Amino acid sequence: MDQILKLQHEDLEMDLVTHKVCRGAQSLDLTTKEFDLLEYLLRHSGRVVSREMLAHDVWHATARATPLDNVIDVTIARLRRKVDEPYERKLLHTVRGLGYLLSGRQA
C-alpha cells in the first residue's frame, strides 16, 4: 500500500514527513493544532467539514461540548490568517450554518 507523504491543494502544499507547509514559495509557520487542522482540511478538500467533524476528528472530543466551538473558530481564524491573508486568492472559506471548506472557489 502506498503511503501519502504530501498533500496539495492548488499552491498549498503540506509535507507529512517533515511537517513543512508552503503556499507558493512562502513557508508557513503553523502550530501543531493548526497543522492537524490543515491536514484534515486538505484530506477533505472540496468538501464542507462541520464543527462536529472537526471536534471529533481533529480535537478527538468524545462528547460534544459547545465551548469547543469557540476553540475551533479561533484556530480556523489563525489558520486563515496564515494561509489566506497575504494572498489575493482565498482557499479557506466559511460555509454559513454548515462549516468550513478548503476550495479555490467561494462557497
Score class of each variant (00 low, 15 high):
A25S: 15
D73E: 13
D2H: 11
L79W: 11
V21D: 06
A63F: 13
T94G: 12
D11G: 05
R51G: 10
H93M: 05
L42I: 03
V58N: 02
S27M: 11
E10D: 15
K6M: 09
H19D: 03
M53W: 01
T66M: 11
S45L: 01
L28R: 08
L16P: 05
Q26K: 15
T18H: 15
V83L: 05
L68S: 02
G24P: 15
H56Q: 14
Q26S: 14
H60P: 00
E13H: 13
L37D: 02
P67H: 14
L54Y: 03
D15C: 13
I72F: 04
H60F: 07
P86D: 09
D15K: 13
Q3G: 10
G99F: 12
D11H: 14
K33Q: 04
D69M: 03
P67Q: 06
R23Q: 08
H93Q: 03
E13C: 07
R47Y: 14
S103P: 09
A65K: 09
I72W: 00
L42F: 10
H44V: 00
D11N: 15
L16G: 09
D29K: 13
V74M: 04
L7R: 13
R81Q: 14
R96C: 05
M14R: 04
Q26P: 01
E39N: 10
H93R: 01
V58P: 08
L41V: 03
R89F: 00
E85F: 08
D69S: 06
L68P: 05
L7H: 07
R96T: 09
E39Q: 15
V95P: 12
R105E: 10
M14A: 09
K6G: 03
A63P: 08
D29P: 00
R47P: 00
L30Q: 06
V71A: 07
D84P: 12
F35N: 05
P67G: 06
L37I: 01
Q8A: 15
A65N: 09
H9M: 06
L16W: 13
L101W: 11
